[in-house]
Nucleic acid binder design. Structure first.
Lengths: 205, 205
DNA sequence: CAGATCGATGTCAGTCGCTGTCATCGATAC
DNA sequence: GTATCGATGACAGCGACTGACATCGATCTG
């Protein structure tokens, strides 16, 4: 019955993932997570701001990595390629650190809970915000910086979802490159055709 | 002290916006909103799923409008232009229904609360999901449908933020068209240059 | 080695978001 | 007029989260 058992935080994370997977996020009281970790509810809230946050411990490092890579890219590299390098790096990190099996389980937990999905969106938005800031430091003006950041994170997110839900294992980084190329061709497809777009397409409902 | 006063829901929305603006979202107990509206806390939760939802009443109609416009666009229109038409429509609706002053106040309330920001991201994600579904019905394959939807919503969101925070009034629809053009040129900027992108740019940290 | 110190944990009480249940009210239909 | 039905009120209760204070374990100091 140790106070002072090592790695309280890690034990809480592990217990939370297990219980969220077994019984669902909504059906898991924090007290039970703490109990399984040999701690009290109060201690849980000293380590994590709320019940959701325990599943997003790694997101800060991911953000640091993204910023570091993009900021470290030579100024001669086009912004969109700097973004590509950044998401490539976090994709590689995700793939190598915990592997796809872990990502799959975690994703199934998140997908099963509205609150967790909401929090995940929040983390991705934070990622986009940090990416936009980094681009602005590279003298990319707004709204280009914000748009590029959002596009980069969208590519990351959609590729990640395809990666975890695919029937067989693929390379996440390849999926991301394919998606980014898709973005390029979509934008090219939609290039202005004469003055066609000076009036919005469609109809007034 | 009527039960049966008309428009309970609208009174709750109004009371909530006032109190969130006056004292902040976190410092406003639901009981107080209900009291100002001449109702009880229990009734609040019959009208709104939670304390945040009261600020997002209009988002469902916005989503319906977006879907309607995109689905109603002729099949000959390029997907990205159908998306452009959709966000143009919801931009117009936002501008005309309540006006910029309302949008500004609402945005300042949302921006001041982490929980409300999170919920807003959730609504925008739902918008993107519905947009992607609509594109798939137009035979746009994945991941193009998802990517286009995310890009469209990103353009909408960023333009909206610029619109509400600009020093003087501008046309939201013009801002959105400018942002979308920016996306096109960003993607064009980053077009493949020979085999340059077969190796990712940047470095391994 | 005794005592001071400090960070991590436990304990307890309390607020607030949110829900289930049942009673009650007000309008409408008959 | 009364039967019916949807909207509201009243109340009890759970669980997330917080503040305040006590306690424990390790480390530092002399």
């Amino acid at each position: 019955m140790g106070r002072w058992q090592p790695n309280a935080r890690g034990r809480l994370e592990k217990a939370a993932m297990e219980l969220y997977a077994e019984r669902g996020f909504d059906q898991t009281p924090v007290a039970e997570i703490a109990e399984r970790a040999g701690l009290t509810e109060r201690t849980f809230f000293r380590h994590f701001a709320d019940k959701r946050e325990v599943l997003f411990a790694g997101s800060a490092q991911l953000q640091d990595l993204l910023v570091e890579i993009v900021a470290g890219t030579p100024a001669s590299v086009k912004p969109i390629d700097a973004v590509a390098a950044g998401i490539d790096a976090i994709g590689a990190a995700l793939q190598e650190s915990r592997g796809r099996a872990f990502a799959r389980q975690r994703q199934s937990i998140v997908a099963a809970s509205a609150e967790l999905r909401e929090r995940e969106l929040n983390k991705l938005s934070s990622l986009a915000g940090a990416l936009a800031d980094t681009l602005r430091e590279r003298d990319v003006d707004d709204p280009a910086a914000s748009l590029l950041a959002e596009i980069g994170i969208a590519v990351f997110r959609i590729s990640f979802e395809r990666w975890v839900s695919a029937p067989r294992d693929q390379d996440l980084r390849v999926l991301m490159r394919e998606s980014l190329d898709e973005v390029r061709s979509l934008a090219a497809d939609g290039a202005r055709v004469g003055a066609a777009r000076s009036e919005p397409v469609g109809h007034a409902a």
